[in-house]
């Protein structure tokens, strides 16, 4: 049986305090952005983008370039490549994402092996690691979260309209392409900022699970937004504590907490959840 002292012990360490703040804020960030990712059926794009970014991470880490800048540019190039292939050839966007982003991920793994990347903590980038979190990460995740909140508050109406009904939104004067680009920018920045704590292989789950759980218990968009953010933060906080006590990478524990909440929500709201989806209990 674990004692209260043992539970609180990690809070004495600076690295854990940093990790806990980053995991909680990153969870909230992923939960917030995840609402749009889920409702716009962009889960696979989030998954692909996070994998693509690993290629950029590997190259910039070996080349000694700023990882956030290098991986960010790499992610942007991958997104443009997907868009270009989809537009010019008879290939669906899901297939293009599957090919290009997985190839980028594989390229990153190969480069690290061939380039002698022994000093590069690939495991931290792949699966997240509490030890890899620095004070700088706290600032970066907080900055990206504030940026995401600002975008969502100031573009709330446009984002909602485009998410629900892009054709009518465009006809109503909303610049849909601009809003889409803004959302992709926030998504890419979120993936980059949370890479150290979530790991690129598990970010997609951190984006999707809180929003899915929130959707199961509410039929109101505004409620779903704050609830998904809260669920993401709880997953990050609890998952980071579990990571320390179980000595498991932070990414898996955060996602597993989300998975447990999903199962719990399914068990509790099974029938009631379906009733809510039908709107009878909506508010």
């Amino acid at each position: 049986m674990i004692t209260l002292d043992e539970l609180l012990r990690p809070f004495e360490f600076q690295f854990f305090q940093n990790g806990l703040v980053v995991a909680t804020v990153a969870g909230a960030l992923c939960g917030l952005i995840g609402v749009y990712v889920v409702l716009r059926s962009m889960s696979y794009i989030g998954h692909g983008l996070s994998h693509a970014i690993f290629g950029g991470f590997a190259v910039s880490a070996l080349a000694g370039v700023n990882v956030f800048l290098g991986a960010g540019l790499w992610g942007l190039a991958s997104a443009l490549a997907v868009s270009s292939v989809t537009r010019r050839r008879p290939i669906g966007s899901d297939a293009a994402i599957g090919v290009i982003t997985t190839a980028s991920f594989a390229f990153g793994l190969a480069v690290l092996q061939l380039g002698g990347g022994a000093d590069v903590d690939a495991d931290a980038a792949l699966f997240g690691n509490v030890l890899g979190v620095t004070r700088g990460d706290v600032w970066i995740v907080s900055g990206v979260t504030l940026f995401a909140i600002a975008v969502i508050v100031l573009r709330y109406r446009s984002l909602l309209f485009v998410t629900f009904d892009p054709e009518v939104a465009e006809a109503s004067g909303v610049k849909v392409a601009r809003i889409d680009a803004l959302l992709m920018l926030v998504l890419a920045a979120s993936i980059l900022a949370t890479m150290n704590v979530m790991g690129v292989t598990l970010i997609a789950a951190a984006l999707v699970v809180p929003a899915v759980v929130a959707r199961m218990v509410t039929s109101s968009f505004s409620t779903m937004l704050w609830l998904s953010t809260l669920i993401g933060a709880v997953c990050g906080f609890v998952g980071m504590n579990l990571s320390y006590h179980l000595d498991v990478a932070s990414g898996p524990t955060i996602v597993l907490v989300g998975g447990a909440l999903f199962v719990g929500a399914l068990a509790v709201t099974g029938v009631r959840g379906r009733t809510r989806l039908a709107g009878v209990d909506a508010h």
């Binding site: 409702l39 508050v153 100031l154 709330y156 109406r157 446009s158 909602l160 309209f161 998410t163 629900f164 009904d165 054709e167 009518v168 939104a169 109503s172 004067g173 909303v174 959707r215 509410t218 039929s219 109101s220 968009f221 505004s222 409620t223 779903m224 989806l277 909506a282 508010h283």
Partner: peptide, 29 residues
Amino acid sequence: PQVEQIDWDFPVTVAQCVLMSRVRGRLLP
């Protein structure tokens, strides 16, 4: 639009849906 084009599972209430067309003129959500 045609009702077939609407995502009826989207989490919006009637009032939230109607308010969408007021996309200009006010920044606050």
